[in-house]
């Protein structure tokens, strides 16, 4: 059986999770649920980014005894996407936290977390 490489698997997984998260954002009425969905979406993006940065049969971009400095360019995976993901994770948490702050404030204002109840502004 010729299975696809893990980078493709995880990429596919990421895309499915992305869609699932998006679906949750669109479909769930509870604000906390929306935020949870967003966090799923966020994770899925990280997964996608890491998997497209992966190069088969290479090792982690850490220069130690296993990988010499001189061979690094041909032996390790591209470190840049990983650096991006690190940043993205931090940003994602920040945004999740901000969303939760909003959720809390919204709840304090109106005593509910139903997003349909916050439609005073329209048109």
């Amino acid at each position: 059986m010729n299975l696809p490489g893990i980078e493709y698997l995880s990429l596919g997984l990421g895309i499915v999770l992305f869609l699932a998260g998006l679906w949750g954002i669109i479909h769930q009425k509870n604000i906390i649920k929306i935020i949870i969905s967003f966090s799923v979406l966020d994770t899925s993006i990280h997964l996608i980014l890491v998997s497209i940065g992966y190069m088969r049969n290479r090792t982690a971009p850490i220069i130690d005894s296993a990988v010499s400095k001189t061979d690094a360019a041909s032996q390790v995976v591209d470190p840049l996407p990983q650096a991006l993901v690190l940043t993205a994770i931090v940003i994602g948490v920040g945004i999740t936290a901000l969303m939760l702050t909003y959720a809390l404030k919204l709840f304090n204002e109106k005593g509910t977390l139903e997003i349909d109840k916050f439609k005073s502004l329209k048109w």
Partner: peptide, 16 residues
């Protein structure tokens, strides 16, 4: 409530 709910919608949209 207006600014809050608007800000939240904005946040979700910008995040997506």
């Amino acid at each position: 409530i207006d600014a809050l709910s608007a800000g939240f919608k904005y946040l979700i949209a910008v995040s997506v």
